[in-house]
Design a protein around this nucleic acid. Structure first.
Lengths: 147, 147
DNA sequence: ATGATTTGGATTGATATCAACCTAAAAAGC
DNA sequence: GCTTTTTAGGTTGATATCAATCCAAATCAT
């Protein structure tokens, strides 16, 4: 004889109310949508903003370091770069010192687009911090502890 | 004459250190990977776990209500259901009262798989809460405020 | 009632995500 | 030196994500 409801409903409620993976995914989707909407006028998604911004350094970073910074898989980064390279916002160059590595170079067009996005980010981000009862610092600490 | 570096490096550091969208995305990726790894032995991803668990109710929910609960687009839910329906873990039935709506029904196989996943979730989630300096409550509050 | 609007989903197209597997280059061991 | 191992990325295949668009059913307005 097979048990009909092997998972009690209370467990479902417990997961729904406490699961941090679920809560973080929900917040991630909501925030991404919000920034996607805000950045749409300049033709950029939230993920592309984070990626382009991470390339704005004195020394162009390697793919590995960017993937680690964004906590994403290296192959995800490869895919994410394709539309940016196609739009000539990013250029990929083989590292002179280590020919396995690729340097990710923000082009002038990429810089210009990023520049247009910065005030949008500032406005949106300030609004989000205001919505948090205790500001963003505690949240950032917790999120860093998870990474 | 075109300005060379329209976005100051300090802005990049500010975004990297404070952007909640970025921090939440990073944590979301890291947590998803962690639960994906833990749940792999039972053949389920973290997202599929959340989805299947949300179907374990006395009354099978509609797609709209599940999409809202998970804060995901309705079309994302349509896509996410396909592999689950194919594996016969979920069955989709037209609502009797409103023929536009679909009721998502957890099958016996779905229940069995979910049942196998619950102890894994409990173990993993307890470990994550332990890693948070102030426990998960503050984090959950903040994440809810963002959604 | 009946025509207009709203609502629940599906489809298509683009990007995002990662596992599994592959290649090439650098580093380590001998 | 030369072989083995490690490391940086790429490719493929599957699922995830959402915008834009469409369809059908329910609701609203008159």
């Amino acid at each position: 004889m097979v048990t009909r409801k092997p998972v009690p409903y209370e467990t479902t409620l417990l997961v729904r109310d406490t699961c941090l993976c679920l809560h973080v995914q929900r917040a991630a989707r909501t925030l991404a949508r919000r920034f996607d909407d805000a950045l749409r006028p300049v033709g950029m998604t939230s993920g592309q903003f984070s990626l382009l911004m991470s390339l704005n350094r004195p020394e162009p970073p390697t793919m590995k370091s960017v993937a680690e910074l964004l906590a994403m898989d290296r192959t995800t980064l490869t895919a994410a770069l394709k539309p940016l390279v196609r739009r000539k916002l990013v250029r990929i160059a083989i590292d002179k010192e280590d020919r396995r590595s690729r340097r990710l170079i923000l082009t002038d067009e990429g810089e210009a687009l990023l520049s247009a996005a910065v005030p949008i980010w500032k406005r949106e981000h300030a609004a989000i911090e205001r919505a948090l009862p205790r500001g963003g610092d505690g949240l950032r600490k917790d999120l860093l502890a998870l990474t």
